[in-house]
Design a protein around this nucleic acid. Structure first.
Lengths: 341, 341
DNA sequence: CTGTTAGCGCATTCAT
DNA sequence: ATGAATGCGCTAACAG
């Protein structure tokens, strides 16, 4: 059996609470250097490791935070998660990462699991099928920060992105190149980010006086296959778009590229492509991608700090929504449209 | 405050232990249907969530496993981790993922942290600076599975890859194409996988009667920059290699590609490239890569099952090393060498 | 400066 | 079929 405080105490001939005090250091209590040293020596000898579980039970504080994201394989969330773990590590917090696969039931399960484990706070990129459980969470006063996605009419700490503006910038770039038929490759419809990106798209169409075409808005998910299928649909249209804005992230975009290549079309000669894309690979793709990307480390930092402030402040700190800009990088996947009649 | 067993019991007018029994179900104890139903109803009403921390303390079982990898941003480990989490979820285990950044001290810290948290088992891709702490772990009888990297003369459960053979296959492919000057882009020297890959490289040279050239073996790490710098070195050589085998994984390989492109060379016209590469992007790169890739899900599964068997078997199960093959996929980054004198 | 006591929430043994 | 009692390992309030 692993040695306990009691074992250490017995070994030194002192009371367990004394050992506890020495080990925790703090407390405005002086302890004779002699026993102090003896205890530390015994700890080394017995190779004592404190039991976090017992400590968490007693203190009602687990030094654990939960991070719930759709999928850690997505480079966007991966980088954010990594940063949060890093910062957590520095502050002695362990992070438990949960993947929902955009499944609302899983989100619920994970949430309960995390609460059951007594996490000190939760960072959540919610599946947005409903928000009741989030309201519950707030009522339970569990420190919470949403990332990427928020709900209207729900006051909660959050770190988000200026999605609409980002798309405006992208479309604007395409329009300047001369594009008029610009398609929008969507991710899952009801997700906050996607809604906002679509809004940005519509606003841009309006601003530049372009015709709205229902068939130019496609896509229903965040997976490779979703991007592939949706783009195929686009490519079967009688009037092909001359440009695509891919808003579903890395995987969707790769799917789109596959579909385009398989149809014997080239980027950007036949079709321009701008994508929300976060992996490092964009410069090395067949056609280096013009991208909208996130400052993912920054997002992770803001989220973690926001959460930590809530956890550590006795009274509730004011609710904040932090918006992190995107980065627009022009590479080779965008060009003037072909001059065909 | 969150309701406890006691609260539920009081609400029903019954003893806490009875509630506990009902909630856990098992036990060869019958409970009258009436109280049973009353209790379940109260649980719903009070929205009782059991306290895992308390349970873990009492049962000395946390339903948690630790996964320590160098870096979850590496697609190789990301996919493995994801699979382990998935399987864990099915079996009610929570997974705590830790990233060492190939830092031995961090590995030690994480290991202690996990033990302190009372994990039921650990899956570890060790930084291989020493193995003492691993021996400790085994002595503590904490269920353990190594992945990717093992130590000589250390009996421990592990899931590894046939690294040497994979490289043999790769070099063999290059030789058949006519290459004679084949360089080896290494990752960190002292890592098991890398050693084995290098062995495979040397064996292949011998087999095909090619000259060993010390300058053709470069590279010291697993990061993008490592690959970039090392490849630059290669490209400064008076006699350029006509092919490179990149054994350091995705990032290193991207770094190599960048270096090659920046030097105005083309793949595969000027230089062929085979890489250990696990991300989905390989077909869409500027030159679709000929790759050696892993069955990552499979590796995750084997590791998890091996660990679970240890955790759940009362007596220690026999120690096993499982070797998972790699997949060799020929794409466009390998071709005949240029016919220059 | 250190010992005593109590209890976090739960599972479990022993009663009844 | 259920209640009572005990303690997992630790921290914290109170003594002295």
């Amino acid at each position: 059996m692993a040695p306990t405080l009691k074992d250490v105490a017995a070994h030194v001939g002192v009371h367990p609470s004394t050992v506890s005090r020495v080990l925790r250091g703090k407390e405005n209590v002086k302890i004779s250097e002699k026993t102090h040293d003896k205890i530390l020596k015994a700890v080394k000898e017995l190779n004592y490791i404190p039991d976090f579980t017992a400590r968490a039970l007693r203190m009602k504080k687990s030094f654990t935070i939960g991070l719930i994201v759709p999928d850690i394989l997505n480079p966007y969330f991966a980088r954010i998660a990594r940063r949060i773990e890093q910062l957590g590590f520095n502050k002695k917090y362990t992070v438990i990462v949960c993947n929902t696969d955009e499944d609302h039931d899983k989100e619920l399960l994970f949430l309960n699991q995390l609460i059951s484990r007594g996490v000190d706070g939760i960072i959540l990129a919610p599946v947005q099928d409903s928000k009741d459980h989030i309201v519950d969470l707030i009522e339970k006063k569990i420190p919470l920060v949403l990332i990427d996605r928020v709900f209207e009419n729900l006051k909660v700490n959050a770190v988000i992105t200026n999605n609409a503006d980002s798309v405006m910038k992208a479309v604007s770039h395409l329009v300047k190149l001369g594009h008029k038929r610009i398609a929008f490759l969507r991710g899952q419809k009801h997700i906050y980010t996607i809604k906002n990106r679509l809004d940005g798209y519509y606003k841009a169409l309006k601003k530049f006086n372009l015709q709205k075409n229902k068939n130019y808005v496609v896509g229903e998910g965040f997976e490779f296959e979703d991007g592939y299928e949706a783009t195929l649909k686009l490519l079967k249209l009688p009037k092909l778009p001359t440009a695509i804005v891919s808003s579903g992230g890395d995987l969707v975009t790769l799917g789109a590229i596959k579909a385009i290549m398989e149809n014997g079309l080239s980027i950007p000669e036949d079709i321009s492509l701008i994508a929300f894309f976060d992996s490092l690979y964009s410069p090395y793709l067949a056609t280096p991608l013009t991208t909208i990307s996130h400052f993912r480390k920054r997002i992770g930092e803001e989220a973690f700090n926001l959460l930590l402030k809530q956890i550590e402040s006795k009274r509730k700190s004011p609710i904040k929504t932090i918006c992190v800009d995107t980065k627009f990088e022009i590479r080779n996947s965008t060009a003037k449209p072909k001059n065909k009649k």
